[in-house]
Amino acid sequence: MRFIFKMCLFFLVSSCAIKSTKSEKINGVSFVASRDTINDTHIKPLLNIHANYAAIMPFGFIRELMHPNIRFNTERQWFGERKEGVKQYVENLKQHQIKVMIKPQIWVSRGVFTGGIKMTSEADWLILEESYSNFILMYAELAETLDAEIFCIGTELESFIDNRPEYWKQLIVEIRKVYNGKLTYAANWNEYNRSPFWEQLDYIGIDAYFPISNEKTPTVEACRSGWLNHKPKIKTFSEKYNKPILFTEFGYRSVDYAGKEPWRSDRDMNTVNMEAQTNTMQVIFEEFWDEDWFAGGFLWKWFHNHNEAGGENDSRFTPQNKPVEALVKAQYSR
């Protein structure tokens, strides 16, 4: 009888543990690199919204889409964009029990979309591959040293991946040799379903800028209807690979037509609309955060100097000092 009681107790505790792990979400922010070091003052606002993860984003730079050399970790870069800054940011965040995804990214001059990076000769492809491997493996090694929970192998590089799939599969093998944490890739919203290496990774990463409404001020109902075009496909894709979905980026601007083309960052889109941002964000939380196959996501984006970020006249992505910040706090506190 005592044995049966112990076994029942074991299964009860195990069941609770499984449910707890299953329901824990990545409530993250994309922590923007700056010129400065960070300290407790910069981390306290993250704790106030109950964020449990931060994506740290060092940068490499390419002169143009057909240029194969990546410049990275140079003194000309901002502190937070290079290795020294990543180390300082991660160590300070971890002191406050905030977990980390290290997410190295490429910047093409003048902000040209990275998905179009494509070489015109085999020689240049080989140079790009060597350069990218040096860039990404340096940060994978650092991620291991810093005990970063997640490492992102790239962000929105669809043409590079479409043209060199075998390179990427081998790169993942090389990353696994130096980093033992969880791996993902940040696929653009219209790219994830053809990325060739999900079986090698731990999360299916999506930058979730799906179009969901053509309304100037999208209503909650319109946004929910818009997600019907995308959510079932995302769920099916998760089931296909038996991998959780992670929104490596998600968010909306506080601007008119926020749900129409959420990826747009044009400066000429500047008519402030806080309701549009709040409604679109509310629905993404309601549609995804309770799903078992959904791991969570990283809000785009969060600046270190909270008091000077966002605000009532800001039409950009950040939720800081806007009505939507209270919504994020309520969701992340669950």
Rank of each mutant, 00 (worst) to 15 (best):
residue 5 F to V: 13
residue 11 F to I: 15
residue 19 K to G: 08
residue 19 K to A: 14
residue 20 S to L: 13
residue 23 S to F: 10
residue 25 K to P: 07
residue 28 G to N: 02
residue 34 S to F: 04
residue 36 D to F: 11
residue 38 I to M: 06
residue 44 K to R: 11
residue 45 P to K: 03
residue 47 L to E: 12
residue 52 N to M: 03
residue 53 Y to R: 01
residue 55 A to N: 05
residue 56 I to A: 07
residue 63 R to Y: 10
residue 66 M to R: 14
residue 66 M to N: 15
residue 67 H to Y: 14
residue 71 R to F: 11
residue 80 G to K: 03
residue 81 E to S: 11
residue 83 K to P: 00
residue 84 E to G: 14
residue 88 Q to L: 04
residue 96 H to R: 13
residue 101 M to D: 03
residue 102 I to L: 09
residue 110 R to Q: 13
residue 117 I to N: 03
residue 117 I to P: 01
residue 120 T to K: 15
residue 121 S to F: 07
residue 122 E to D: 13
residue 122 E to S: 11
residue 123 A to Y: 08
residue 125 W to T: 09
residue 125 W to H: 09
residue 128 L to T: 02
residue 129 E to Y: 07
residue 129 E to D: 10
residue 134 N to G: 11
residue 137 L to R: 06
residue 146 L to F: 06
residue 146 L to G: 07
residue 151 F to D: 02
residue 154 G to W: 00
residue 157 L to E: 11
residue 158 E to P: 01
residue 158 E to H: 13
residue 160 F to P: 03
residue 161 I to T: 09
residue 162 D to T: 12
residue 163 N to M: 13
residue 164 R to S: 10
residue 164 R to I: 02
residue 167 Y to V: 06
residue 167 Y to M: 06
residue 168 W to G: 02
residue 168 W to I: 10
residue 171 L to C: 04
residue 174 E to W: 09
residue 175 I to E: 00
residue 184 T to Y: 07
residue 184 T to K: 06
residue 186 A to K: 00
residue 186 A to L: 00
residue 186 A to S: 14
residue 186 A to R: 00
residue 186 A to N: 10
residue 190 N to I: 05
residue 194 R to K: 14
residue 194 R to G: 03
residue 204 I to F: 01
residue 206 I to T: 05
residue 207 D to E: 15
residue 210 F to R: 02
residue 213 S to F: 01
residue 216 K to S: 10
residue 220 V to E: 08
residue 226 G to I: 08
residue 232 P to A: 04
residue 235 K to P: 01
residue 238 S to Q: 07
residue 240 K to Q: 14
residue 244 P to T: 07
residue 247 F to D: 06
residue 249 E to M: 07
residue 256 D to H: 09
residue 259 G to I: 00
residue 261 E to W: 12
residue 264 R to Q: 14
residue 265 S to N: 13
residue 266 D to F: 11
residue 267 R to K: 13
residue 272 V to H: 04
residue 273 N to V: 00
residue 274 M to H: 15
residue 274 M to G: 08
residue 278 T to Q: 11
residue 283 V to Y: 00
residue 284 I to K: 04
residue 288 F to T: 06
residue 289 W to G: 04
residue 296 G to I: 00
residue 299 L to E: 06
residue 300 W to G: 06
residue 301 K to C: 12
residue 304 H to F: 09
residue 305 N to G: 04
residue 305 N to Y: 09
residue 306 H to V: 10
residue 310 G to M: 05
residue 311 G to V: 04
residue 312 E to T: 14
residue 314 D to R: 00
residue 315 S to R: 03
residue 324 V to F: 01
residue 327 L to E: 01
residue 332 Y to T: 06
residue 333 S to G: 09
